[in-house]
């Protein structure tokens, strides 16, 4: 698999580190709502189809990427730097 890092260009899968589901929202840091923390830490939609997920280009520029990838075909629909994607509200 090749991932087109927005910074480095297409690179081999081996350079990337999977960081998991990107759809969860972290509760307010001071929240004491255990259920909310539980849902954030432990549950995921785990879809069969397009999946919003984070990867880190650990063996390259070190940036985290927000990727939409199909879990049935492994086809990558989009890649963005997580920082800019989150900042611009493009997050799923």
């Amino acid at each position: 698999m090749l991932i087109s890092c927005p910074h480095c260009g297409p690179r081999d899968l081996a350079e990337f580190s999977y960081q998991g589901d990107a759809t969860r929202t972290r509760p307010e840091p001071a929240s004491t709502d255990t259920k909310a923390w539980h849902d954030y830490v432990y549950t995921r939609p785990n879809p069969a189809g397009p999946h919003h997920e984070y990867w880190q280009h650990a063996g390259g520029c070190r940036a985290h990427l927000l990727i939409v990838r199909d879990t049935l075909s492994h086809e990558i629909h989009s890649v963005a730097l997580a920082r800019s994607a989150n900042a611009s509200g493009a997050r799923a």
């Binding site: 081999d12 899968l13 999977y18 069969a48 999946h51 879990t71 049935l72 492994h74």
Partner: peptide, 13 residues
């Protein structure tokens, strides 16, 4: 292979 998948299809690394 370290990423979510339903593909029964592995990768080269």
């Amino acid at each position: 292979d370290y990423y979510n998948s339903y593909a029964q299809r592995g990768n080269l690394p």
